[in-house]
Amino acid sequence: MASEIDIFNEYPLHLDPSSKAISLLPSSSQTATQTAAITTELQELNALHRALISLDPPNIPPPPLPVNPKRSAQITKLRDSGNAAYRKSNYAEAIRLYTYAIEMAITRPGWEPVTLAREELAGLYGNRAQAHVGMQAWPEGLCDAKASVDSKPVGNVKAWWRLAKCLAEMSRYAEAKTFLLKGIEIEGRDSEGGKELVQLLEDVEAALKRMG
């Protein structure tokens, strides 16, 4: 029993001398599915290794807190310029900038706190959804708003509104109603944005009635 922890399946791995990438040597001892699983795992491992190499010595991920402020600052900058473009009704530009910011936030190293990534991405997706709404790109707005409320369901009343708005604009009133009810349940009826949700809900219900 004591030796059980020392037992393992050895795989014929190969280290590329220059890139230090690990790969699986072809052999007959594994089935196709096993080989596929190992290969994907090794890809993840190599990606993680590259991320670790870029760190300062001793090349281990720092504890989740405190966060490296550089990336946050860049994301904030991109978001602010996106907001500025949005205010000038330059929606395409705003979407482009928000997309850069999202790219940046989503490629945050994995060991940084997930709550931070959620917070940032909720805001960015919410803003991009709004820019899509401005361009009447309802399907894109819908997906972004969904990503936003999924990232941060509480205290994200604008994203709930945009989500329902996109659905209502596409005449998907039943779905819009479901999300509105959920949003109202989470945000509360009397909060600042809750009233707008209620208002939109009334519109949607009226539309549903007209459709019969």
Binding site: R87, S89, V133, W161, E196
Partner: peptide, 11 residues
Amino acid sequence: AVLVEADPSVT
């Protein structure tokens, strides 16, 4: 759309 970004209550 512009109003929403500026102030949610104006929407």
